[in-house]
Design a protein around this nucleic acid. Structure first.
Length: 789
DNA sequence: TTTAGCTCAATTTTT
DNA sequence: TTGAGCTAAA
């Protein structure tokens, strides 16, 4: 997604001087500094939650560039999310700019910094000639992949009842996580499912090439194989990436591990200047192929590796850190590592037990309201974490009723919405007509009377043809040959082919937003939606308007990145390049990337989405056996599975800065059934002295209605002194009305800035601060009041 | 070809 | 309970 917050504003810089004296070694603790300075040879940094890992990584990169004189482009840093990559890029740029102002600097280029996938895509594009592709490829997401698998199954006459396409997809992706190709796939003699998977996988791979497409797993695998099989390519990149950094190493899968080996290991000619950073206690993606052994075995993989542990936490209260520590201690497959903090003790963790999920939502929301009005918090201070997306419903209902702004993170991604995918399919087809998955998607959207029968006929022709032929070529032929279908159908197909040709022709001359409107006009997409007149259709139209904004933002963004001369020269080239650039970006983003923006709203998300984030107040809800830890009813939970759930619990708890609320309910309706739930075993793992129990559940057997009256604070909190609000209300924060525009800010993270915009009032007052590099950030004024200089 | 009703399945989802 | 995806009728 486009990062609106950090888009260059194009305005003149207003700040003069940034953070302190600019040395990137200042402000680091001993362990962090040790990791920064250990630049040669393998290094593993075990970075506990909130221990300043990103700070360490960015300082290290700057140190390499400035102190060691390593050319920036020789440094590689890989993350898992765009968000993490963006944050690092931003911080590195800021540090370097700062140091240049201090008289240092003179560095060249930028470090290669991005997600595993984006780095690999760039590499593959550069080495396109060494791949099976003859022209730039598109990227298939999971649903595109599933469509293709269904197609393959159909063609191979593999029954989709006996072998569910989803199951086959999962098996193929599991193989890709392990970098296993169809040929390398072994199937036991009696493993009939495995044999079918192998058949589908094999054909699927061939189809990918015909379609000029890659799936997520293949991006990594293909890069790995390219490096493995082409010595010259391997040498090029080993030489280029002299210093390798990997973030969230605990989440790497086998394929990523192998890829890194190719680049770094001595055995393959590498230099072993590899620095991996991770926390085995936060490995929560085993089910997606992450292999925790990668981090546990690093020291034996890279003999002589230095080990640095970052154990000081700067985020949470002592209570939260201690409680989380007691939980994670129960895991056996982990390294010896104990988080500690110099922060305040803080208040006890509240454990509330409630009659049902409705009461749970009411309680959480009433606590949010109470803290909002009595403790001076803004809505953006609160986060609700749950194990499954389905749990968000209850909370949304209550929040909506109470008119409290909220934002659900995750769930259905913006780019996964039907209408958005449809439009993007048009764009992808324009770029790459060989892409049959997207072509099939749009051929009858909006409805243009080219239905299933027609498609089946075309498929038959396609199968009967000698040699590979793309679906697009079949369409072109069918448009001219009425005998393939019928005269009427041939005309309809002809109209569609003309439509695509026309848009394709116009594309190079148009801006993205213009192209988008051309597509809407020519297809009548919005007209069709309006005809429906339903609420759902309205929502879709709104999403399409949002897409229009995204296109415009993207254009501006691209434009701002150009130099003066580039802007004048070759406007045509620029327009032509917009579409491929956009498609690439949109294929590799998630919703989380755009989460900032709505500062003053309660955030709701799954525990998985919460990784890497932090909030002053966290509610971890639905802590019940079976739900969290999650256990499939028909399977016995293995100790390994429970350990992963426990890590998830640890991740959730350590997101909280000041206050943590845990809750469980006694009766929960799941899929329409009433379930009697046991409290999660994780409660037992937290020593009683950190917990404050508030049990509202017995009510359920008498009168449940009383439950809505309850609140977390209806039982007075015990007096365990030591806690004081982390952000005391300063005079500036409470005294509304004074003009703050132009006031200078010294932010501990972003450095020097000045307030350029103010909106809202009292506790909800928000200010926009512009930092070095024209970087703008929006804060609640209360947040930054204490940073005023 | 479209659409209304039925069946079936159902965690988590960085890219 | 919800929704997605598919068969049977219009």
């Amino acid at each position: 997604m486009i990062d609106f917050e950090s888009a260059p504003s194009g305005m003149a810089r207003t700040t003069k001087k940034a953070v302190g004296d600019g040395s990137y070694l200042r402000g680091l603790n001993d362990r962090q500094r040790e990791a920064v300075l250990a630049t040669e040879g393998p290094l593993i940094v075990l970075a506990g939650a909130g221990s300043g890992k990103t700070k360490m990584l960015t300082s290290r990169i700057c140190h390499l560039i400035e102190a060691q004189g390593v050319p920036a482009h020789r440094i590689l840093a890989m993350t898992f999310t765009n968000k993490a990559a963006g944050e690092m890029r931003e911080r590195v740029a800021r540090m370097l700019a700062e140091s240049a102002r201090q008289g240092g600097g003179g560095y060249l280029g930028n470090p290669e910094l991005g997600t595993f996938h984006s780095v690999c895509v760039r590499l593959l594009r550069r080495e396109l000639g060494r791949t099976p592709f003859t022209k730039p490829f598109v990227i298939y997401d999971d649903s595109d992949q599933l469509s293709l698998i269904k197609r393959v199954q159909e063609r191979l006459s593999i029954d989709d009842k006996a072998f569910s396409p989803k199951g086959i997809q999962a098996a193929i992706n599991r193989a890709k996580c392990d970098a296993i190709s169809p040929e390398e796939m072994e199937s036991a003699p009696h493993d009939i499912f495995g044999r079918q998977v192998k058949r589908v996988y094999d054909q699927y791979q061939k189809d990918l090439v015909v379609n000029n497409a890659l799936d997520f797993g293949e991006i990594i695998c293909m890069t790995y194989r390219l490096l493995r099989d082409c010595e010259d390519v391997r040498e090029t990149y080993q030489d280029r990436f002299r210093y390798i950094h990997v973030d969230e190493y605990q989440d790497t899968n086998r394929a990523q591990y192998l890829l890194l080996s190719m680049l770094a290991k001595k055995q393959f000619g590498g230099h072993e200047n590899i620095c991996v950073v991770g926390d085995e206690d936060q490995s929560i993606y085993k089910w997606r192929g992450a292999d925790i052994r990668n981090i546990l075995d690093f020291e034996s993989d890279y003999p002589g590796a230095q080990v640095v542990k970052l154990e000081q936490n700067y985020r949470s209260t002592k209570t939260i850190i201690a409680a989380a520590g007691h939980v994670i201690k129960n895991n056996l497959t982990r390294k010896d590592k104990t988080l500690w903090t110099e922060n305040e003790d803080g208040l006890p963790i509240v454990h509330a037990q409630l009659p049902d999920e409705r009461a749970e939502a009411e309680l959480v929301v009433s606590e949010i309201k109470r803290q909002g009005s009595h403790e001076g918090r803004g809505y953006g201070d609160f986060a609700i974490f749950y194990r499954t997306n389905a749990q968000s419903r209850q909370f949304e209902d209550v929040l909506r009723r109470e008119k409290i702004p909220y934002q659900v993170v995750g769930g259905l991604r913006f780019y996964d919405r039907k209408e958005i995918k449809d439009i993007l399919s048009y764009l992808k087809v324009i770029l790459n007509p060989t892409d049959s998955v997207n072509l099939r998607r749009i051929i009858n959207v909006p409805a243009r009377a080219i239905g299933k029968t027609t498609i089946e006929k075309l498929d038959e022709v396609m199968m009967a043809s000698q040699g590979p032929i793309t679906f697009w070529e079949i369409l072109e032929r069918a448009a001219l040959d009425p005998s393939m279908t019928s005269a009427g159908t041939a005309r309809k197909i002809g109209a569609f082919v003309q439509l695509i040709r026309k848009i394709t022709e116009e594309q190079p001359k148009l801006l993205l937003s213009e192209l988008y409107h051309l597509i809407l006009d020519e297809t009548g997409y919005v007209r069709e939606l309006r005809k429906e007149g339903t609420e759902e259709a309205e929502a879709r139209i709104e999403n399409l308007e949002e897409l229009d904004t995204i296109f415009q933002e993207f254009e501006e963004d691209q434009f701002n990145q150009l130099s003066e001369e580039e802007r004048k020269a070759q406007p045509e080239e620029r327009k032509r390049a917009l579409l491929p650039a956009f498609i690439e970006q949109s294929s590799l983003v998630s919703d989380l990337d755009s989460m900032e923006g709505q500062a003053s709203s309660v955030k709701m998300m799954t525990l998985h989405s919460s990784k890497g984030l932090e909030f002053p107040v966290v509610f971890l809800v639905g802590m019940e056996e079976g739900l969290f830890p999650s256990v499939r009813a028909w399977e016995e939970a293995s100790e390994e599975d429970i350990e992963e759930e426990r890590r998830l619990c640890y991740v959730g708890m350590t997101r909280a800065r000041e206050r943590l609320f845990l809750s469980n309910v006694v009766v929960r309706r799941i899929w329409g059934n009433v379930n009697y739930q046991e409290p999660s075993r994780f409660f037992v793992e937290i020593p009683g002295r950190f917990l404050e129990m508030r049990d509202f559940a017995p009510q359920v057997f008498g009168g449940a209605s009383a439950s809505t009256q309850r609140s977390f604070s209806s039982i007075p909190a015990p007096k365990t002194g030591g806690w004081s609000p982390a952000r005391p209300a300063t005079p500036a924060a409470t005294g509304a009305g004074n003009d703050v525009i132009g006031r200078r800010i010294h932010h501990p993270e972003y450095g020097e800035g000045s307030i350029v915009l103010a909106e809202g009032s009292a506790d909800d007052r928000k200010v926009t601060v512009e930092f070095a590099g024209k970087q703008r950030r929006k804060f609640l004024f209360r947040y930054v009041a204490s940073y005023l200089s």
